Computed example of a mutant assay.
Amino acid sequence: MRKRSPAAERHAELIHIALMEAAPAGLPLKRLMGACELSQYQTRSGLAALRDMCGEREWPPLIWTREAGYHFAASEQELEAWERVWISEKLTQFRRMITGTLAPHLALYPTSRWANYLSTQIRAVEASLEMAASQTS
């Protein structure tokens, strides 16, 4: 696990308190910043630290949705929906990397060991993400 600064942990604790007070509703970033009296940078580093702390302390996962802002996942269905959206976004990023960078690399240097290795690995990750992002369980 990555080491966190004491400041990030303090910010995470402030954010945790603010979100618990707002529960079950969440808080958009700007309102969360105001509630904790933190800058945008401090809030974002606190959110990252809080995500780690949630895993370490077995708290409900911290998620962000357009409708509620930052909040703790309230149900398994909500968490699964959020995970599918997150995975779908990563799948899009992988596909853009393949078509925008890796494919041109292979076109320029078809015998490149690195590009061929990377293509094989990324295609495997792409297939796994595609299955995880699908709507069927």
Rank of each mutant, 00 (worst) to 15 (best):
M1K: 07
R2H: 06
K3S: 05
A7I: 03
A8I: 05
E9V: 15
R10T: 06
A12L: 06
H16R: 15
E21H: 02
A22C: 05
A22L: 04
A23F: 03
L29C: 06
L29K: 08
K30F: 07
R31W: 01
M33H: 04
C36E: 06
L38R: 13
L38P: 07
Y41Q: 14
T43L: 07
S45W: 06
L50M: 04
R57M: 07
W59H: 05
P60Q: 10
P61Y: 02
L62T: 02
E67M: 00
A68I: 02
Y70H: 13
H71D: 00
H71K: 05
A73W: 07
A74P: 01
S75N: 08
S75V: 07
E76V: 06
E76F: 03
A81D: 11
W82N: 04
E83P: 00
E83W: 10
R84S: 10
M97F: 15
T99H: 08
T99D: 15
P104M: 12
P104L: 14
L106I: 11
A107K: 11
A107I: 02
S112M: 11
R113M: 10
N116M: 08
Y117C: 06
Q121F: 06
Q121C: 10
I122C: 08
A124Q: 13
A124L: 09
V125S: 10
V125H: 09
A127Y: 09
E130D: 10
S137I: 05
